Amino acid sequence: MTLLAHDRYCDEIEHQVRQLRSVVTSGADLSATVPTCPDWSLEQLVRHMGGALRWVDQLVRTRAQENIPEELVPLHGGPEAEGDPAALDAWLAEAGETTVAALREAGPDAKVWGWAGTLDAGFWARRVTHEITVHRADAALAAGLPYEVAPEVAADALDEWLQLVEWVQRNLPHAAADELRAPERVDRSIHLHATDAPAGLNAEWLVELAEEGVVWRRGHEKATVALRGPLTDVLLAFYRRRPLDTAGLEVLGERELLEFWLEKTTFG
């Protein structure tokens, strides 16, 4: 598996921050419930993402070797005034600028605390890219706005999500993750197939729910169940942001296995 270049992640964070800001300033109702994150309003989602950016900025800028509690991160919670799109936009813009600057200055190999076993700034460039890519989809859905993402970013987001599931299953006590282990001699597997991938991009995955834990790789192989469709739709469905019955998506084989996976992979 080949990661994107560090600067490509930084460029994408800048792009996604601009896109999220455009939702904030679009006239959308900031108090509207986010359908894919129903515990949040649109404003709460944006404050969560902006706070995450500022947290990562602090971690990377200080080369932290342990976690920094969010209450110690300046301006983590966002502007005091609620329901003010201009203030929210300015706060989010600054969060994006400072975080990207810190990541670019550090480079991918700078040693920084991380929660998934990779202790460098490169982990955070990739993690922030996909965190904001998916939450920007949440915001766009809440505001009724279109959403798209670059194919190479969408494919890398699926790689990263599978890696995170694998890491949690092997390193944390987690009941749902343990349920993803297949009983001995039982073959359970999921195939993801993007039908619109550009030439040169391998956008197919095989995920095996093995007895020892999840094993995955890119490639076209027969599986217990397959999810086929446009890459962005496959990404959002696998992140539980779109229903499996979304127009353009196909589920072939044992749908119950795919539904079981989506039910259990709510961590990361």
Rank of each mutant, 00 (worst) to 15 (best):
L53Y: 03
L30D: 00
W205N: 00
P243L: 04
A177I: 12
V73L: 14
V186I: 13
H15F: 13
L252H: 14
G248D: 10
P173F: 15
V214Q: 04
V46W: 06
E221N: 12
L172E: 13
N171I: 04
T266M: 13
R218H: 09
H76I: 06
R188G: 00
W115I: 11
K111S: 04
L180S: 02
L88I: 03
A157N: 04
R8H: 06
P79A: 02
A175W: 15
V225G: 02
V24F: 07
A140Y: 15
P38D: 15
E148P: 11
A64P: 03
V17E: 02
A87E: 02
H6L: 01
L172C: 09
V100R: 02
W161T: 02
V134F: 14
D120A: 02
T195Q: 12
A121K: 00
K111Q: 05
A203M: 10
P230E: 13
R242I: 04
K111G: 01
A199R: 14
V134N: 00
P146A: 05
Q163H: 11
T118E: 07
A101S: 03
R126H: 04
I190C: 03
P79H: 13
Q163L: 10
D109Y: 07
T133S: 01
L30T: 03
A101G: 07
D7V: 04
A143Y: 12
M49P: 01
E131C: 05
A101I: 06
A194W: 07
N67W: 11
L141P: 05
A140E: 11
A203C: 10
Y239W: 15
T265L: 08
E82T: 02
Q58M: 09
A210R: 09
D178R: 09
L88R: 00
C10K: 02
A110L: 01
A139C: 08
R21Y: 12
S26T: 12
S31Y: 15
I132T: 00
E179K: 14
E71H: 14
H6V: 00
A106E: 05
L42V: 03
A90Y: 10
D109W: 08
D233S: 08
P146L: 05
A81Q: 14
V134H: 06
A90Q: 05
N67V: 11
L257K: 15
L252W: 13
E204F: 10
P146K: 11
D39K: 11
E14H: 08
